[in-house]
């Protein structure tokens, strides 16, 4: 009879496995999981902010390769629907601009075009159960070139997902995953001025006041139905559209 080696569950911040700086944990399914503090959330936002320009500067093709690698690492660790969802968004990385962008037939002698750019640092407070809503929001935000601070509602599968991300080619800080109390993490993210966009489970209205302070984009995530909630729509919520004008000689 072998005695199993139990895993210490840790959050992922800046590519590293960390306990809460507060030293607090909470019990989930008989296991101790880190209880993120306001400072943990702040550290995660700082890491995301630092990593975001580098991630955004990678071409869509490269981001797609990395998300696909993440799908490879998730395969077998979590439900197959999660790796399938990552494959789906790996494909959007180099295609989102072709669906969301446009050449604008302006009346004057100008070449005008519009294309998506990442909104920046995205907080994703996913609904449960399981990792599918979390993976969908994270993958869509990453596909758009954002860095993410994610809250895992179902902490064990959420941290499995986070572990897989550390073993993929995702650069440190691009995806940070915290666990703990839903409403306190959501409130910390809503109040943080360096978070550009916050996605929370419906209803999002309670976070509107905090988000309005810095005009943070507020995205509402459905509570259920995530099996069928893929698609470009989620990428679209995590990008801005930039329009460029250039004269055409006459």
């Amino acid at each position: 009879m072998r005695t199993s080696v139990r895993k210490t569950w840790k959050m992922v911040v800046n590519g590293e496995f960390v306990r809460s700086e507060s030293g607090r944990t909470f019990e989930h399914d008989g296991q101790q999981v880190p209880l993120a503090s306001r400072k943990d959330v702040r550290d995660a936002v700082r890491a995301a902010r630092q990593a975001q320009p580098g991630w955004a500067s990678r071409r869509g093709y490269n981001r797609g390769q990395i998300l696909y690698r993440l799908a490879e690492m998730v395969e077998g660790r979590l439900d197959g629907a999660v790796s399938d969802r990552l494959v789906h968004y790996a494909g959007w990385c180099d295609k989102a601009a072709q669906v969301l962008g446009a050449v604008n037939p302006v009346a004057g002698p100008y070449f005008s075009f519009s294309f998506p750019e990442p909104v920046g640092v995205v907080g994703i407070v996913a609904p449960g159960p399981g990792a599918l809503p979390l993976a969908t929001g994270v993958a869509a935000a990453l596909a758009g070139g954002n860095a993410v601070v994610a809250y895992a509602p179902d902490p064990i599968v959420g941290l499995e997902f986070a572990e897989a991300s550390v073993t993929s080619d995702l650069p440190p800080g691009v995806l940070n995953v915290v666990t703990g109390d839903f409403s306190s993490v959501a409130s910390h993210l809503a109040a943080h001025r360096d978070v550009d966009c916050l996605a929370v489970p419906a209803p999002a209205q309670p976070y509107a006041e905090a988000c309005s302070d810095s005009l943070k984009r507020l995205v509402e995530l459905p509570r259920e139905g995530w099996e069928d909630l893929a698609g470009i729509g989620w990428v679209e919520r995590f990008v801005e559209i930039k329009t460029v004008w250039h004269p055409v000689g006459t």
Binding site: Y61, G64, C93, K95, V99
Partner: peptide, 17 residues
């Protein structure tokens, strides 16, 4: 390789294309 990668990703996005 990149070409297969790119079109592989379109397979489930034809309705959006």
């Amino acid at each position: 390789a990149a070409h297969f990668f790119y079109y592989a990703g379109w397979a489930d996005k034809l309705g959006e294309a």
